[in-house]
Amino acid sequence: MKKIYFICTGNSCRSQMAEGFAKKELARSFEVRSAGVEKHGLNPQAVQVMKEIGYDISGQTSDLIDLEYFNQCDLIVTLCGDARDKCPVVPKGHEHLHWALDDPAGKPIEKFRQVRDEIEKRVKKLK
């Protein structure tokens, strides 16, 4: 099975939402994980906006990048410039996508919904 890793700064919002979508949409093709270059904890507003559309990410955890998993990944997706810049070097032969998405943390709930919807579109294109 192929492996995919969603990485953002704190593994609290964007990468968590991407993991939630991918675990449902890509489960037949990919083992899915998310991580951050830092650990900020799971953002309750990310949990809330995902729940609004039927995805429960409340059991996910905020994790730092696992280099062993990272080096085994077929696809690495960075979701912000900070993660792209601080991410370990992507091994040769591994695909890397960069999605420059705004960080919704600390912003109104509508921003979380906008980012969520954009992530959903992009994850579905990975099929």
Score class of each variant (00 low, 15 high):
Ile119Cys: 04
Asn71Pro: 12
Ala83Asp: 02
Tyr5Trp: 11
Phe30Thr: 03
Ser58Asp: 13
Trp99Asp: 01
Asp63Gly: 13
Lys127Phe: 04
Asp63Ser: 13
Glu38Asn: 14
Asn71Arg: 14
Lys3Asp: 10
Val115Ala: 05
Lys111Thr: 11
Lys127His: 10
Ile53Thr: 01
Val32Ser: 10
Gly81Phe: 10
Ile76Pro: 09
Ala22Cys: 02
Thr61Arg: 15
Val90Thr: 09
Ile7Phe: 07
Thr9Ala: 04
His98Leu: 02
Asn71Lys: 14
Glu19Lys: 05
Glu52Thr: 00
Asn71Gln: 15
Lys92Trp: 09
Ala35Asp: 13
Asp117Gly: 04
Ala46Gly: 03
Asp117Ile: 02
Arg14Cys: 05
Met1Glu: 11
Ile57Cys: 09
Leu64Ile: 14
Ala105Gly: 06
Tyr5Ser: 14
Lys86Asp: 03
Glu110Asp: 12
His96Cys: 11
Ala35Trp: 00
Lys51Val: 06
Lys51Ser: 10
Val37Leu: 07
Gln48Thr: 06
Gln72Asn: 14
Phe21Pro: 03
Met50Asn: 00
Gly36Met: 09
Val49His: 02
Arg28Asn: 15
Asp74Val: 04
Glu25His: 03
Ala27Ser: 10
Leu97Trp: 07
Val90Ser: 06
Asp102Ser: 11
Gly54Leu: 10
Glu25Val: 08
Asp66Cys: 14
Val49Trp: 01
Met1Arg: 12
Thr61Glu: 15
Val77Ile: 08
Lys111Asn: 08
Val115His: 02
Glu110His: 09
Glu31Arg: 14
Arg113Cys: 10
Lys2Gln: 10
Asp66Ala: 15
Asp66Asn: 15
Tyr69Thr: 14
Lys51His: 06
Gly93Lys: 06
Gly36Ile: 05
Lys2Phe: 14
Glu68Ile: 15
Ile65Ser: 09
Asp82Gly: 12
Glu68Phe: 13
